[in-house]
Computed example of a mutant assay.
Amino acid sequence: MTETTTPPPTALRGAVGVWLATAVFGVFTVGYLWIRPDAVREVLRPGGSVAEVLGPLTVAALLFGGAYAVFAPLLLRGRRWARVALTVTAFLHLLWVMLPGVSVAGFITVLMIGIAAVLTWRRSTAHWLKEQ
């Protein structure tokens, strides 16, 4: 007797896509800043260096992006704990993005995280994860 599993719901597949898009967006945003250091110099304090600003941003983008890239596929495979891991990562990411101030990239990141979180915690996703 073969066991058939139901495919993941559309909301969950969408959530995984948005989590991964958030990871890519963060890395590309930092990459753009490395390519355009003049944009960073405009907002530096006197005596500050571009590397001092972009170093922590790069580490954060790689850590958050890496976490999304690891946890999102695990969620798609039915690992319930990955939903909590994504939520905790998203909360920390929101703090990281919101504390320095408002920016267009920050707004887009917050929007993407919000969409992904809502899709991750939809009833259809929760029901599917219980079946796994």
Rank of each mutant, 00 (worst) to 15 (best):
G47M: 04
A39E: 14
L94P: 03
T87C: 09
A85I: 08
P9F: 15
V70E: 10
A82D: 09
A126G: 04
P7A: 13
A61T: 10
V18R: 10
T2K: 00
G101Q: 03
V40I: 09
L119T: 10
G78T: 15
A90Y: 04
L129I: 06
L74T: 13
E52V: 08
G66L: 04
L20Y: 12
R77T: 14
A51L: 13
A39C: 05
A51R: 10
T29D: 12
P73V: 14
P73S: 10
T5N: 08
W81F: 09
P37K: 07
A69E: 09
S49Y: 05
G66E: 00
G17H: 13
G26H: 09
T109A: 00
F28T: 10
T58S: 13
A61F: 04
A11S: 14
E3F: 01
S124K: 05
G78V: 15
R79T: 14
Q132T: 00
V53C: 06
E42S: 11
V43P: 00
R83S: 11
V84D: 12
I108C: 02
V27P: 02
R123F: 08
T22M: 03
F28M: 05
V110R: 00
G106P: 03
A72D: 14
A72W: 14
G17E: 15
G26M: 09
V16S: 15
V70I: 13
P9C: 15
L33I: 07
W81S: 14
H93K: 02
V43M: 07
A82R: 13
L57G: 09
A67W: 03
L75G: 15
A23L: 07
L54Y: 02
V102T: 05
L62R: 07
T22R: 07
T109V: 02
T5R: 12
M1H: 07
M1L: 05
W81V: 13
R122E: 11
W81H: 10
A117P: 00
V104E: 02
T125L: 07
P37W: 05
Y32F: 12
K130G: 01
V30P: 01
I35Q: 05
A69F: 13
A85Y: 04
R80H: 12
L44W: 01
T10E: 14
R79I: 14
A21F: 08
L54G: 08
